[in-house]
Each structure stands twice: as structure tokens, then as C-alpha cells.
């Protein structure tokens, strides 16, 4: 049985001790290899589309993370403050609304957001791709920000169960400072970062899924080409779908394997990019939990 870990102070042992860094390295390296392969074998227009799609998805994912952080922080702290205020009306209203939002599957929230987006596109209210991506990030953030709000509330509630908050209050330290600085900033950064990594993964998944879904069509007036190029959008493209369908050939004709990596590269590259990124982000999040002993 292998029970030993890396010995000495090699770069391997340093990587292994960080737990999340090896997977970050694998992710970047994997995408790097894919990029080189595509640069060599994928036709130039498809390669350009793939790069734009990846960057757009990355940008949207990052924006989802930012929006979720702001929304989650605001709602989490507000809920806590309102819960401990004299009047409980505000707390009841916000909890009720968040409770309803929680019961709507994320993809439905995003779908509704996309329906509104198609109406805005159709009426010419939104035109630029940049604004579209911000809109998409905004609606995905609405679907997922409650996870950040929950983490914030859990952290505050945890410290409330200790003497932490009361001891500082008795010394005259303001409650605002105790929550925002002492609890959230100084004691919850790792927890929040972990949650944000997970949200980044969910946002990539939701983005790709919704883009793939709308390839079926949300409106007779607006189609895939009206939306910014993302990984999901590119995967829903007919060429990519054909490439993925070609994988079925492997069941009957295993010798077809080498051909796939050259002839069906667009669809395969997009699918690999999505799946590999989802796997690596999950592993990074898990490694982060282990490194910071969050569980």
C-alpha cells in the first residue's frame, strides 16, 4: 500500500502541500495543451471563435463571481442586521423573498432572464455584446448569490454562538465593525473564497447549459447569432454538435479514435474545455477546503 507522500523540498512536495495548487496547475496546463493542439490542427476561423468563446465565458464567470459577492454580502449582512433589529418586518420580507428564490431552480431563473434579454434585444434596447454579457452575468448572479449570502450568515451566526460578538460589544466596539471587519474580513475570507470558486464553476455550467438550450430557440426573432459567443453557444453550433455526435462512431469503430482528434476538433475542444474546467474547478475548491481546513 502506498502511504507515503512526496519527500524532500521538491517543487512536487510544495505543490502537494498546497492541495489546490496542483489542480490549478493541471487546469492551466490542460488548457495550454489544448490551445497548442488547436493552434496546430484546428482551422483558423474556428480557432478564433474558440478563443473568443473561452474568454467571453471566463469574463462572464468572473463577473458572476463579483456580482454574487456584492449581492450576497449585502443581503447576508442586511438579513443579520434586520434579524437583530427591533422591528422584524424587514427581516420577514427579505427572508420570504429569498425563500421563494431558493425554490426556483437556478436554470429557470436564468431562463427567465434570457427571455427578458431576448425581448430587450428584439426591441433594440441592448445592442453591445459587452452589455449582454454583463446582463447574463447579472441574471446568473441572481440565481446563485444566495450561496454567498448563506455563507455570510452562517459565519456570523457561528461567531454569535461564541462570546466573540458580545465580548467586543461590551468593549464598545461598533457592531458594524465586528461583522464586516472582525468576522467577515478577518475570519471568513477563506470560506468566501471557497464559495466564490464554487460559484465560478456553477456559473460556467449554467452559462453553457443556457446557451445550449437557447440553440433550440427562445424567440423567432432572436437566435444564437444575436448572443455573444460563449463556450455553450459554440457547442450548440451545428458543426460542434456534429463533432460530438461523431464520438458515437467509437462504439462501433474504435480505430476512429485518432481521426476524432483532428477532424472533429471544434466540438471536441469546446466540450473538453467545459468538462475539464468543471472538473478542475471542483478539484480546486476541494483542495482549498483541505488546505484551509474549512470542513
Amino acid at each position: 500500500m502506498a502511504t507515503k507522500t512526496f519527500t524532500g523540498n521538491s517543487w512536487l512536495s510544495i505543490l502537494a502541500s498546497k492541495k489546490d495548487l496542483p489542480w490549478l496547475t493541471i487546469w492551466i496546463a490542460g488548457l495550454g495543451v489544448l490551445w497548442i493542439w488547436d493552434a496546430l490542427f484546428l482551422n483558423a476561423p474556428a480557432f478564433a471563435r474558440l478563443q473568443i468563446a473561452f474568454l467571453n465565458s471566463l469574463f462572464t464567470g468572473v463577473m458572476v463571481v463579483l456580482f454574487s459577492l456584492v449581492l450576497g454580502w449585502f443581503v447576508g449582512v442586511s438579513l443579520h442586521m434586520l434579524e437583530h433589529s427591533k422591528s422584524k418586518v424587514g427581516f420577514a420580507v427579505i427572508s420570504f423573498v429569498t425563500d421563494i428564490l431558493r425554490s426556483i431552480p437556478q436554470i429557470i431563473t436564468v431562463l427567465i432572464g434570457y427571455v427578458v434579454l431576448t425581448i430587450l434585444l428584439h426591441n433594440g434596447i441592448i445592442r453591445s455584446s459587452f452589455v449582454q454579457m454583463l446582463w447574463i452575468a447579472g441574471i446568473i448572479a441572481i440565481a446563485v448569490f444566495l450561496e454567498v449570502a448563506d455563507t455570510i450568515r452562517q459565519r456570523i451566526d457561528y461567531f454569535r454562538t461564541l462570546d466573540f460578538v458580545d465580548a467586543m460589544l461590551c468593549c464598545g466596539i461598533k457592531e458594524r465593525r465586528i461583522i464586516n471587519v472582525e468576522i467577515l474580513w478577518k475570519n471568513s475570507r477563506s470560506h468566501m473564497l471557497h464559495k466564490l470558486i464554487a460559484i465560478f464553476g456553477i456559473s460556467i455550467f449554467l452559462q453553457c447549459s443556457i446557451d445550449f438550450i437557447i440553440s433550440v430557440g427562445l424567440s423567432t426573432d432572436v437566435s444564437l447569432i444575436n448572443f455573444p459567443m460563449t463556450l455553450g453557444n459554440l457547442l450548440a453550433n451545428v458543426d460542434s454538435k456534429q463533432d460530438i455526435l461523431a464520438l458515437s462512431n467509437l462504439f462501433t469503430e474504435p480505430g476512429y479514435l485518432p481521426v476524432i482528434f483532428v477532424r472533429h476538433l471544434q466540438g471536441l475542444s469546446v466540450a473538453f474545455c467545459i468538462v475539464f474546467s468543471l472538473l478542475c474547478i471542483y478539484m480546486i475548491a476541494n483542495g482549498f477546503v483541505r488546505r484551509h481546513k474549512l470542513a
Binding site: F205, C208, S209, F212, L235, K241, I244, L245, L247, S248, N249, F251, T252, A271, I274, V275, F276, L278, L279, Y282
Partner: peptide, 22 residues
Amino acid sequence: KGMLLMLLFSPAYVIAYAVKTT
């Protein structure tokens, strides 16, 4: 193991399209 994990992380439409003709 990595392939199996990737299968578990694959969005449904990727798996479905990969086996659609079979």
C-alpha cells in the same frame, strides 16, 4: 479515473450527443 470523473462532471447534453446515434 480522470475519464470517469470527467464523465460525472459532463453536462448531460455532451454525454447525450456523444452517444446519440448508438
